[in-house]
């Protein structure tokens, strides 16, 4: 057990280091931040001075090493664009993204499972077919288009919901939440739907196919033969058994919800880390890009590690020593 965990943790650390190295080697292709930091009346001397000051005259492995050296001490540098510590900016921006991810994840799971069960039970019904066809939109339309469509419908035409921003926020310690104010709640609806739509359709389709599988199984037939109510059969016996793969997929998707919030955040001007990252790329704000990418990879690696460990705990076959096997 301990060897397995240790091995996985070491592997994860290695992945992180490689991600960082690749990221830093990419930064030189994003462009040169110098021109964004200096005005049009800059001289060659100004350019040279700033380049040295930021350490951009060093080869990228050296830059990476310096970043790592500072990062392990908790110092992620200072944003080129904002002139503020990156860690401070990330802490300020993280709640917006996490709240958005949580709400859209919740929507995706609850609606996805509900619709999945519905479309499985009424396999050939009109409603089920309509939902299945509509769900294709969620899978095939790009996020930014869905976002813009929702904005035009609900903000411009109907005027019900705000087109951008997070509404009023309440600060609780370092955390800022928009879930406690009316305008904040209204503001999160459209971005959450936009962000969660893909995951929702994914979960729905997964639940549906799992359900169809399970509904064919003998124990469900026996349950029906015993005269149990449809609802009991469908939800207590069938649904429960479809949830194992759903949970796996959802766990992995949570990471992508946070990572892919970039596009949604840009469309809705949602003040989270995704928008911060996009701005950083445009400005070639290397410290912010580096910190964001490392953070996201830590998150992905972390989630994968947890999933691996959970499998280990759940699935006895993985315990190669055979003690767990019956």
């Amino acid at each position: 057990m301990l060897t397995y965990v240790l091995k996985r943790v070491l592997q994860s650390a290695l992945v992180l280091l490689v991600v960082g190295l690749v990221a830093f080697s990419m930064f030189q292709f994003v462009g040169d931040p110098i021109d964004n930091m200096l005005g049009q009346e800059r001289t060659d001397a100004d350019i040279a001075r700033l380049r040295t000051e930021l350490g951009l005259d060093q080869p990228f492995p050296v830059q990476y090493y310096k970043f790592l050296e500072n990062a392990v001490q908790g110092d992620f540098g200072v944003s080129y664009r904002q002139g503020r510590p990156v860690a401070e900016i990330l802490v300020e921006r993280a709640p917006a993204t996490l709240e958005l991810a949580a709400v859209s994840g919740f929507l995706a799971i609850s609606i996805g499972i509900g619709l999945g069960v519905l479309t499985a039970i009424r396999k050939d019904g009109f409603l089920a077919n309509a939902i299945m066809s509509l769900s294709l939109i969620g899978v095939s339309l790009p996020t930014f288009l869905i976002g813009i469509l929702l904005i035009y419908l609900f903000s411009v035409e109907l005027g019900w919901l705000p087109a951008f921003g997070r509404g009023d926020v309440v600060h609780i310690g370092w955390w800022s939440t928009g879930l406690l104010t009316g305008s904040g709640l209204k503001a999160i609806i459209l971005p959450a739907i936009t962000l969660g739509l893909y995951q929702m359709t994914l979960i729905m389709r997964l639940v549906r196919s799992e359900m169809l599988e399970v509904l064919r199984q003998d124990y469900v037939r026996f349950a029906r033969a015993r005269g149990l109510k449809d609802r009991t059969v469908n939800f207590r016996h069938a649904l429960k058994n479809t949830l194992v793969p759903v949970i796996t997929v959802t766990g992995l998707q949570l990471g992508s919800i946070i990572a892919f919030a970039i596009i949604t955040e840009t469309v809705f001007q949602w003040p989270g880390v995704g928008l911060l990252f996009i701005n950083a790329v445009q400005f070639v704000d290397i410290p912010v890009m580096a910190a964001y990418l490392m953070l996201i990879s830590v998150m992905f690696v972390g989630i994968n590690l947890i999933v691996d460990l959970l499998y280990f705990a759940i699935d006895p076959r993985l315990r190669t020593d055979g003690k767990g096997a019956h």
């Binding site: 813009i148 904005i151 411009v156 087109a163 951008f164 840009t266 469309v267 001007q269 928008l275």
Partner: peptide
């Protein structure tokens, strides 16, 4: 003042009066 990077969003915000 609010920065809005996406021009389509900015136009929508103007149209909706935000």
């Amino acid at each position: 003042f609010t920065p809005i990077q996406n021009s389509a969003t900015a136009v929508a915000a103007l149209l909706s009066g935000e």
